[in-house]
């Protein structure tokens, strides 16, 4: 078990995206999500840290950061969605896939995952209109040729409310 006391968002994310992790480490990923929910400015700080990791030249670090981002979208609620739904953060994702910015230096795997996430949010979070603006701009630019197919287990479906026991 990781020691939760004194952990910061940055230290959780460093552990969750450590390039020497042999596989995605869900203890750290969930630790990061929980820390976001505990802190007043958790979502604002988290998206800044995530953007930096997603732009890592190390593919495995970037892939893990995208998994963390996906987990945060599922577990950190509206406050986090609002931060992701700002151009300030969306622009950082656009930079990863656009050849005008970092696109030529980023692996296809990372770019495909970014596009998958953006598309899944346009479907799951229609109220976040800037996500749609960003995604359709990438389509107009020819950076996204066709909508990706999102596996059912990867769609952003909020957990259903718990069923009452023996009503």
């Amino acid at each position: 078990m990781a020691e939760a006391e004194g952990e910061s968002l940055e230290s959780w994310l460093n552990k969750a995206t450590n390039p020497s992790n042999r596989q995605e480490d869900w203890e750290y990923i969930i630790g990061f999500c929980d820390q976001i929910n505990k802190e007043l400015e958790g979502p604002q700080i988290a998206v800044r840290l995530l953007a930096h990791k997603i732009q890592s030249p190390q593919e495995w670090e970037a892939v893990q950061a995208l998994t963390v981002l996906e987990a945060c979208m599922k577990n950190c609620g509206r406050r986090f969605h609002n931060e992701v739904g700002k151009f300030r953060f969306l622009n950082e994702l656009i930079k990863v896939v656009s050849p005008k910015y970092l696109g030529d230096r980023v692996s296809e795997k990372v770019k495909a995952k970014v596009i998958e996430l953006l598309y899944s949010w346009t479907v799951a979070l229609p109220e976040e209109s800037k996500i749609k603006d960003a995604y359709y701009m990438l389509k107009r630019q020819g950076i996204v040729m066709c909508d990706p197919i999102i596996p059912v287990d990867r769609t952003l479906i909020p957990s259903p409310p718990p069923r009452p026991k023996n009503p």
Binding site: K86, F87, R88, L90, N91, I94, K95, S98, K100, Y101, K130, D133, A134, M137, Q141
Partner: peptide, 15 residues
């Protein structure tokens, strides 16, 4: 007011 100005400053990246 802070939120309004943040909204005004939030632009899509020029392509």
């Amino acid at each position: 007011l802070g939120e309004e100005s943040e909204e005004r400053d939030d632009h899509l990246l020029p392509m």
